[in-house]
């Protein structure tokens, strides 16, 4: 098979489109690149969806945790502790086992036992907890003067939150939130190693990389390719989030703008 044919056959293999059997026998570089890249679709899917949905819960959690009312504060604190204090790996295992036993109760839980929804739910809660903590930290460091100025203008409650607190919080939290986004994408590689089955061998990038490593007993080709793809993905995320960061900071004088620094945090 020529490389073009390989790409045609396997580019969307992770979605079940194209050749059904995975490559066998001779494993060419082209096959490595195509199949691992095809798996990356799932990583992007999990990361992007969990990030966008998790954002809203994270804001709610941050506001809840900084609330003086313990009825709001305590649940938010516990939620954040629960998801930040335990390994994501165990959370996946636990959620999968939970969904499996709930499946026998009601057929409503059927889709939750497959990765596309079940793992997404876990990642959603997980990223909400991590970003919630980041946003909470940002809420605490909003300059006192900003709030006082808002008060002086007669703003309060929802108006003040929407016009002053929320934009400032977002601006302060954005560099840390960028790191969170990067590590959420890295964390998506755990999905198919944690109980969630890869249906018809439709897995993510790491799933295919370890498939090649298992078959060829040579880790030196697939894993660097995987790393290459993830570095590329990281650069894309930095570019997108950097553009947003610019937008959030555009009203500030040049030297007060917050710079983004990559602070990798490894495992969740």
């Amino acid at each position: 098979m020529s490389c073009v044919e390989t790409i045609q056959a396997y580019a969307f293999r992770s979605l079940g489109i194209g050749e059904r059997l995975l490559p066998r026998g001779e494993y060419t570089l082209c096959e490595h690149f195509t199949l691992i890249g095809s798996g990356l679709i799932w990583n992007v899917y999990f990361g992007a969806l969990a990030l966008t949905t998790g954002f809203f819960l994270a804001v709610a959690l941050a506001v809840g945790k900084s609330s003086p009312n313990p009825l709001w504060r305590k649940p938010a604190e516990w939620f954040i502790f629960l998801f930040r204090g335990s390994p994501l790996f165990i959370q996946f295992f636990f959620a999968y086992a939970c969904f499996l036993s709930l499946k026998s109760v009601s057929s409503f839980f059927d889709p939750f036992t497959s990765a596309w929804l079940g793992a997404l739910v876990v990642l959603f809660f997980n990223t909400a907890a991590y970003s919630g903590e980041i946003f909470y930290g940002a809420l605490l460091s909003i300059p006192k003067g900003d709030i006082e100025a808002a008060d002086a203008y007669g703003m309060s409650g929802w108006t003040r939150f929407r016009r002053i607190t929320f934009p400032t919080m977002l601006r302060l939290a954005w560099p840390a939130y960028t790191n969170e986004a990067i590590f959420l994408f890295h964390a998506t590689t755990l999905v198919f190693f944690s109980g969630f089955p890869a249906w018809r061998q439709q897995g993510d990038a790491l799933y295919y990389a370890s498939y090649f490593a298992d078959k060829t007993f040579n880790p030196f080709v697939p894993y660097p390719i995987l790393a290459f793809y993830f570095i590329l993905l990281t650069l894309v995320i930095i570019a997108i989030f950097g553009a947003v960061n610019k937008h959030l900071n555009k009203h500030l004088p040049q030297e007060r703008r917050r710079k983004f620094r990559l602070r990798p945090n490894l495992i969740r």
Partner: peptide, 19 residues
């Protein structure tokens, strides 16, 4: 080491070190 995704390293190093 810091730039590359987490568990890829764990999967990679064990075979690589062994070899």
């Amino acid at each position: 080491v810091r730039g590359v995704p987490d568990i890829a390293f764990f999967l990679f190093f064990v075979i690589a070190l062994d070899q």
